[in-house]
């Protein structure tokens, strides 16, 4: 399941997409994120699931553009180099910007 956390506003699309089928709930991304944007939660979309999945915290959902700002310098970056994406071995995390 693709969970899109974030928003779209006048300045663009700001979404972190977590593929809950790929996420194994290891929590490496939670550790890696310097802004503490991610957390592990119960997988409410699959009642049979045994492991938790990563999700964007309630606190950061609506300001994700700014929360992720420090990892995204204006002079350029690649989304695949972001600490959360790097930390995720199964490749479950994507950024839209």
């Amino acid at each position: 399941m693709l969970a899109n956390y974030g928003y779209k506003d006048g300045s663009g699309d700001f979404f972190i997409t977590i593929d809950t089928d790929k996420c194994d709930g290891c929590g490496a991304c939670v550790e890696a994120c310097p802004a503490k944007v991610l957390e592990l939660v119960e997988n409410e979309f699959d009642l049979d699931a045994e492991t938790d999945v990563a999700a964007v915290t309630e606190e950061h959902k609506k300001k994700i553009k700014y929360s992720c700002g420090p990892c995204k310098p204006a002079h350029g970056y690649k989304t695949e180099d972001l600490p959360c994406v790097q930390a995720c071995k199964p490749g479950a995390i994507e950024h839209s910007w």
């Binding site: 399941m1 928003y7 506003d9 979309f45 609506k62």
Partner: peptide, 10 residues
């Protein structure tokens, strides 16, 4: 069963 979602509550 949910395959993907997107929410605007901002």
């Amino acid at each position: 069963k949910v395959k993907a979602f997107l929410m605007n509550d901002k």
